[in-house]
Design a protein around this nucleic acid. Structure first.
Lengths: 153, 153
DNA sequence: CTACATTCAGCAAATTTTTCTGTTTTGACT
DNA sequence: AGTCAAAACAGAAAAATTTGCTGAATGTAG
């Protein structure tokens, strides 16, 4: 790491706050001219520091989707079983995020389903069909109090 | 809701996939000309359907930050206590996401701290100082298997 | 000191954004 | 169906940005 100089870090910070900021504005704030900013943004993209750009959509205004956090405990902790589970679970459309974690559980999933029926179908028709899934504990999101996807870097 | 027609939804879908897509490209894919697309994007922004645009940065490549999911159970479930907790906890820099949920716990927090010391300082110096915090259960993220912030709408 | 590589500013062409105008479509009402 | 007003649209043109290029400045190794 830290082939990243202050200008690189500044770009990452600013584009996290507003991905549609123009190169000209980036240049103004970082006290550089446009061309080096342009080249650096391209470099950050091509070298995987920036994985993409996304619009943050107000889900509650735009759909009836329901969000849940679901914890998975495996009943087989072999490397093969864990890898197989990961490989399969991330393919499900409703699984938006998947983390392997320390503690009582093995995985935390963020699930977004179009409605309660879809959520039920996912849990019973897809998730529970995967091998070696032990306990499944779900927490439905009642309200999103904060969601800030910018990280301090 | 559903002042949203298929073009609105198409814009939201496409900008979730790539927030830097040009209006011209949006227009081409949605089979419209540029000006209505331009007007609609502006409308979606001003009416809160699009809350912002963010670059997705590879945290592991760009920093040493550690991520944790932390569950909070309150020992006072009055409206005042819950509201007060929400109001305070979202102000902490390390709290990137906060959800009020059903189930055994009351809140799920996504915490991102610069390092283990920062994380410790947050837990013991900030979080546990808030009133009415009962049990706190933390899960450190060992690996991020999937993180897709686009939602099907 | 020189040669080389890297980073940069400034310029210019290509492209996009943004505004404006006039036309078409939509939808409500007769 | 026919009429009207409002909304949505396509196209054009000006303003701004993106993108590639050139040559200068800076730093480094020989």
């Amino acid at each position: 790491m830290s082939k990243l100089d202050p200008t690189h870090l500044g770009i990452l910070r600013l584009l996290q706050e507003d991905a549609r900021m123009t190169h000209k504005e980036l240049a103004r704030r970082l006290r550089k001219s446009v061309s080096p900013i342009f080249e650096r943004v391209k470099w950050l993209e091509q070298n995987g520091y920036i994985k993409g750009y996304t619009a943050l959509v107000d889900l509650q205004k735009s759909s009836n989707s329901i969000i849940s956090y679901t914890h998975i405990q495996m009943n087989d902790h072999s490397e093969e079983a864990l890898s197989a589970f990961q490989r399969e679970v991330v393919l499900f459309e409703d699984v938006r995020e998947c983390y392997y974690i320390t503690g009582n559980f093995d995985f935390i999933l963020k699930i977004v389903s179009p409605d309660m029926k879809g959520y039920n179908d996912f849990l019973r028709g897809q998730l529970s069909k995967l091998p070696n899934v032990g306990s499944v504990q779900s927490f439905l999101v009642l309200s999103e109090e904060k969601r800030d996807t910018t990280y301090k870097i």
